[in-house]
Write a protein that binds this DNA or RNA. Sequence first.
RNA 1: GGAGGUGUCGCAUAGUGGUCUAGUGCGCUCGUCUUGAAAACGAGAGUGCCGCAAGGCACCGUGAGUUCGAAUCCCACCACCUCCGCCA
Length: 427
Amino acid sequence: MLDIKFIRENKDLVAMGAKKKHIDFDVEALIKIDDKRKELILSIDQKRSEQNEVSQKIVSISDPAQKSQMIAEMKVLKESLQKEEEELKTVMHDWQVLMVAVPNIPDVSVPEGVDDKDNREVKVWGEKPKFDFEPKDHIELMTNLGMLDLERGTKVAGFRGYFLKGDGVRLMNALWNFTQEYFYKKGADGNNWTPMIVPSLLKREVFMGTGYLPQGEEDLYKTQDGDYLAGTAEVATMGYYMDEVLEKKDLPLKMLSFSPAFRREAGSHGKDTRGILRVHEFYKYEQVVLCEASHEESVKYHEEIQRNSEEITEALGLHYHVVANCGGDLGLGQVKKYDIEVWLPSENTYRETGSASYFHDFQTRRLNIRYRDDDGKMKFVHSLNNTALSGRPLIMIVENYQNADGSITIPEVLRPYMGGQTVISKK
RNA sequence: GGAGGUGUCGCAUAGUGGUCUAGUGCGCUCGUCUUGAAAACGAGAGUGCCGCAAGGCACCGUGAGUUCGAAUCCCACCACCUCCGCCA
């Protein structure tokens, strides 16, 4: 959500931003409703003021005739007050609906474009692996090595269901531990990341706050109690400080949150139907940062959390590139986003393993997360997030580190977490 | 799941229809006094909305009511606490 005052003063900017994101939004319609809102509030406040004043007087009046006269007058005032309050309620409803639909303004550095095909490559690291044999995909490799069971996965959990087992679990756990240690070591220079295990079953409110609702209803699983399952730990982590006033000295707050992630994948029925590249349920470590309300701070930490994911990917020895997402590929609240995409041999292309974005105060305004700045004013903090590690790097490792005999060499940095084991081969 | 209780300005409390636009204590800020500190004394201090301003309005868990007037009464919901049941 943006500040209505800001919208009023920068309506062209807001309109241009929406256009760059390829989102239809009528700024003029919002301003028109806001005019009505202001007009009603003014009138209601005046009437309440009068009511308060007369109510005070009624107490001290002893003449019964005069008293009932005043009460009668107040009854009339009350009626018109109620009418206007009713009207305001309707206006406020419409106003809110429009306000949560106002897209945040993308940064000038965001490339123009409609969808992910227009994303711009900004970095490449490493090289494509060369195989002197026909490389297999992760399904074949993992199934053969007893790391994955898709047949029983679908038997038990339905489409996109899977069991990870054996060395698949050990390798995955090694990745979790490696990631955790990576961020723990960052803490050594006072740059503290707080590890958290956060809930995934959350109230609707928090999804509204993070901007996943009301637009993304289809993508979320919903319970019969009206709660939703989160597709990322970002949601719960952002909700953690909802309705709180933070201390400036505690900023930035950096959180490394672990949680299961649930995705309906409603819009991607035909996509990635084989294997575990796209699943309904997986685990993920997410980086979430809350910082001071300045664009420079946001940019600084955006680069930092992006770099963290790059370093992890580099340590794993995976060839990747980074794209700056184009306007049309940005979410409603995002100002700018980088995707990190790792080379997947079986598809002969890069596939996303992480997504780093910043929001300015778009989310924190909805969630009401503030701090008092040095100038004494309350401000909404800025928020950012990025994947630290999801389940996908497991697939990338398996495919990129495969050997001719179908075994998998374990990346060096993970070996300490697997008892020094160097290769996963058929038992 | 059942029964009961509680939810007030950072914290603790007072307040059961009209000087409560919320009192008091602690804490906080500023000042007086003091070589300095403590103590004492005095003053001040919340958040949001509208407004150039003066000022006005809203906020006593949330929402919806009754009333000329609600922290106070009615209803629903939420959170927490205690006990019982169930499960781990």
